[in-house]
């Protein structure tokens, strides 16, 4: 069983908060069999598919999944430059990618993932106003965060990035990368600890950070305190 009854109750409660419909694009390696069933072989693909479908079941029609195979739907994979699976893409109404999970969001990563779905559905995030105030001062940025499902600091850091991505409507994009599923990427970016965040392929943030820290980083210190502490 994927979830205990207690977890199911909690998930149902959280899913009931969704405001608008959310469509997630899931990329796996499924192969359609003669009997029309789909077989997924990649590590994490079947698990991710099952997890997302459980969420769909609890969402009262608010969450939908579009599954694509990098084998059978090459055009869609090419369109979003998906080379790693499983990948979950949060795509806005114009087809622009806002968040990518190159990860199987289980363990400690599950709650932040659920939170991302909530924000994406229009739940107004706690930090929305301050981020919107500073958005003009922030350049278009690409953020990658490396995580593991057992890292205790990662669940506190991932939502900071996804929040910025959603509020900025993709001006800041976020990719969550599970080191266990993508060891080659971890090696490429010389990841030796998590969370490890790469900003625009050039800068690194080691360890946990708060929304305030990220605002400082992205506005290059020109953060406006809005008079709260003036």
């Amino acid at each position: 069983m994927l979830f205990s009854q207690n977890e199911i109750d909690n998930i149902k409660r959280e899913m009931s908060k969704l405001k608008n419909k959310v469509i997630l694009k899931l990329f796996t390696d499924f192969k359609t069999q003669e009997n029309n069933t789909k077989v997924r072989n990649c590590m994490g693909c079947e698990g991710t598919y099952e997890l997302l479908n459980k969420l769909v079941e609890f969402s009262d029609g608010k969450l939908m999944i579009e599954e694509y195979s990098i084998e059978e739907n090459k055009d869609e994979a090419k369109k979003y430059d998906v080379k790693r699976i499983p990948a979950i893409l949060f795509v806005d109404e114009n087809g622009n990618e806002v968040i990518r999970y190159s990860a199987h969001p289980t363990g400690a990563e599950f709650v932040p993932f659920l939170n991302s779905i909530q924000y994406f559905s229009g739940v107004r995030p706690y930090y929305a106003d301050q981020i919107l105030t500073h958005l003009k001062k922030i350049d278009k940025s690409k953020m990658k965060i490396f995580i593991t499902p057992t890292c205790p600091y990662c669940p506190a850091t991932v939502p900071v990035l996804t929040l910025f991505a959603i509020i900025s409507k993709g001006k800041i994009s976020a990719e969550i990368i599970d080191v266990n599923l993508n060891p080659d990427l971890a090696m490429k970016y010389q990841v030796q600890g998590v969370p490890h965040t790469v900003v625009n392929e050039t800068e690194n943030i080691y360890g946990m950070f708060t929304p305030q820290d990220l605002l400082d980083k992205l506005t290059k210190g020109k953060r406006d305190f809005g008079g709260m502490y003036a």
């Binding site: 890292c151 030796q192 600890g193 690194n204 080691y206």
Partner: peptide, 11 residues
């Protein structure tokens, strides 16, 4: 983050 850590569970 490049060899110095304060969290064995993480790193």
């Amino acid at each position: 983050g490049r060899g110095v850590s304060y969290c064995a569970t993480c790193d």
